[in-house]
Design a protein around this nucleic acid. Structure first.
Lengths: 243, 243
DNA sequence: TTGGACCCTGCGGGATCCCGCAGAAAAGAT
DNA sequence: ATCTTTTCTGCGGGATCCCGCAGGGTCCAA
């Protein structure tokens, strides 16, 4: 059994390496990659099916890497080991995990033992391990209470990219009015909407821009999510006939 | 001489601790704090004038901490030790460094020796040390070529927060039209402006939202900058009479 | 079949944004 | 002091956004 580490921080990399050797005596080889690109390549060449990776790397972030790796070999087991539990990450992952795949998500702030336990659970016992903090996120995020629909999230990303109502309508096959409906819905859920009577700070905020701001502040969006979305957008734009 | 470490990652903290003891034999005490708040408190209580800190921490980010520390004791020497050289960070720091203060900025990806050298330069020789990559950023950022004026950056932040033209005008003591002028200028510099003739993809983008998007993608803005700005904004809002 | 809950859609209007035009004020340059 | 450059400001209009209102679909339960 071989394990692949994808992590750009040398200190964390060597720490992981040690943890893996200690937790998995049956492991007979640890490979290391320091960014998403190298990681994808190594995973392909070495047919590694046990991966531990960071999200948030310079060259190519973890979610991108995971997506292509899982696309090529869906039964790969991946443990995400990250500093943060941004909703953007959690949502990004749940978007790309193949049906029935085994994966895990543990925070770097977790204890030594938790990490080792997670390694064994995922790679040996074939059991998913999600940090409770992340788990909480996930439930709040996907549950209806204060959670965002796929449609709402989608339109949030679209305005964050700077698309107009019309462009969004084209892209999502909707009428302009429907797009605006969804926007209103989004504004309400983000707590940005002023029900018309509040003299308090009426007219101070541009709802569209404000929605993006609070989404970022709440970590519903982050840099890597935006980058990913920008990539998708440019693909769509290229396929689009002018007008 | 005592040195204070402010860094939320335990691995990096202990690595720093070792590096400091090795590089500075004249150092007779190393304190550690794991977030900005604790760091500020320790700096105040122990009158520590030699600090190494990370930017990007959970509780309270490095720039905030540095600002209050420098406000209380401007001659404090701070070495920023960070993963990234986002323009947002560089600009944020150059905004708050007191005149003539000694400070440094080295990336975590730098070699052992570079870090130790920087420690000696700053704490012993009273000499600023800025990583060359960061230096590059700084020049591009402050030089006129493709660099952003204080005014332009300010208005970028304002629209990123979701303020309307009118609110920005109030806040910055300008007419609405002037605000719009600055916005146009910003759009041009961000490469977002369409000179009216381009049938190419006219009307696809909402300039205001698009500007924010590309600013994020270029790391001209990041989460911590937005958080900081949001804080300032709420202070201003509280002082504002309704209407 | 009827009724209700939900989403999509068109219409219309007020508010906001984007920006060309042109004069006034401020800051430098010669 | 005069000229130049830059910035600020008002005016005006077209495009966009925000959203209430109302009609038309789909789906599910009664």
């Amino acid at each position: 059994m071989k394990v692949l580490i994808i992590e750009d921080d040398p200190l964390h990399r060597s720490y992981l390496n040690e943890a893996i050797r200690a937790a998995l005596p049956e492991c007979d080889g640890v490979l290391e990659a320091e960014n998403g690109n190298a990681g994808e390549r190594l995973a392909r060449d070495c047919k590694s099916e046990h991966i531990v990776m960071d999200l948030q790397m310079n060259q190519r972030n973890g979610i991108e890497a995971a997506r292509t790796i899982w696309k090529e070999r869906p039964e790969t087991r991946i443990l995400f080991w990250s500093n943060y539990s941004d909703e953007a990450y959690v949502r990004g992952i749940s978007r790309i995990v193949p049906g029935g795949a085994v994966y895990g998500y543990v925070l770097k702030s977790a204890s030594d033992d938790r990490l080792k336990l997670a390694l064994r659970s995922i790679f040996i016992e074939s059991q998913c391990v999600i940090d409770r903090e992340v788990r909480g996120m996930q439930q709040k995020s996907l549950g209806n209470v204060n959670g965002f629909t796929e449609a709402e999230y989608e339109i949030l990303v679209d305005i964050a990219l700077g698309l107009t109502d019309r462009a969004i309508a084209q892209r999502r096959n909707l009428s302009v009015r429907s797009v605006q409906n969804r926007l209103q819905q989004l504004y309400v859920k983000l707590g940005v909407y002023q029900p018309l009577g509040s003299q308090d700070d009426d007219g101070r905020f541009n709802l569209r821009a404000r929605a993006v701001a609070v989404a970022f502040l709440r970590k519903l969006l982050n840099h890597s999510a935006l980058e990913r979305a920008e990539g998708d957008l440019s693909v769509w734009l290229a396929r689009q006939p002018h007008d």
